[in-house]
């Protein structure tokens, strides 16, 4: 399983070295434009199964748009987005993509503020998402156990009956991550997951992500360089809608172009 992780560690181009079966997410020549402005410009990217990848880049580099394209929120003008061996993500809507096992955390923590923490997790728990199945759904014992376990993992056990809107910013981030994990995702897209967290929370998050990597594939968008360093995985630098540099953090930090457009400022 961790063949891909080995690739990550060696720091070589995974597209060249990974067999097609091992690439979980593959973007090729993806272009998205809004009224003439190219948010993504022939972006190509490959993420191996079990890999954790961090994506950095200045504002407007296309990080969020990239997530929108992967999750079916935005249709690319041109290009291909492939998940696993066969599935073309550009043909699916958000719900379709989510049901393939692709979870997304938003930049701004997005939870259901009027539902309790427990109910938030209940809705996230993997199950038949059909309308009538949902209407008739009942919580069984194993489901309750899974939710309880997740409450422990994200440390919100004592808040389970509070409305999610009453949580702190960091707690909402954790709740959202917990919800994602309950969907049993193969691929997690995390947009600035530690924004608004305390240092301790950030450390805990880094530890959690490292634990998840391998069994899950993670794409983490972050501005917090400390956090990126802590994760210690391959970094992709986006700039003006395409990949500017890729490699270990040390490697990209030495890249003069990266320094010019992003890190240097």
């Amino acid at each position: 399983m961790n063949a891909a992780a080995v690739n990550v560690a060696t720091g070589h181009d995974p597209v060249a070295e990974t067999a097609p079966g091992d690439t979980l997410l593959y973007l090729e020549d993806v272009t998205v434009s809004f009224d003439g402005f190219k948010a993504l410009n022939a972006l190509s990217l490959a993420i191996a199964k079990g890999e954790m990848r961090t994506v950095i880049g200045p504002n407007g580099a296309g990080k969020t748009t990239m997530m929108d394209v992967i999750t079916g929120k935005t249709r690319p003008d041109t290009g291909r987005v492939q998940f696993g061996d066969r599935i073309d993500l550009t043909r699916l809507d958000e719900a379709g993509v989510a049901n393939l096992g692709i979870g997304r955390k938003f930049q701004k923590p997005t939870v259901f503020e009027n539902l309790t923490v427990f109910e938030n997790l209940e809705l996230a728990l993997k199950c038949d998402r059909g309308t009538f199945a949902t209407l008739l759904a009942r919580l069984d014992g194993s489901a309750r156990r899974r939710i309880a376990d997740m409450l422990d993992l994200i440390g919100l056990g004592e808040h389970r009956h509070r409305p999610a809107g009453a949580l702190s910013h960091g707690q909402k981030q954790w709740l959202e991550i917990g919800m994602l994990l309950l969907t049993d995702p193969q691929l997690l897209l995390l947009d600035e997951p530690v924004a608004g967290m305390t240092d301790i929370e950030t450390e805990q998050t880094a530890a959690l992500f490292k634990e998840l990597a391998g069994s899950h594939t993670l794409v983490v968008v972050e501005h917090d360089m400390q956090f990126v360093r802590e994760l210690g995985v391959r970094v992709t630098v986006l700039h003006e809608g395409s990949v500017l540099a890729e490699g270990s953090l040390d490697h990209v930090q030495k890249d003069q172009r990266v320094v010019d457009v992003y890190l240097g400022r």
Partner: peptide, 11 residues
Amino acid sequence: DAESRVRFLGY
């Protein structure tokens, strides 16, 4: 509350 979150959860 958050329609997009519902979508991204797969409903």
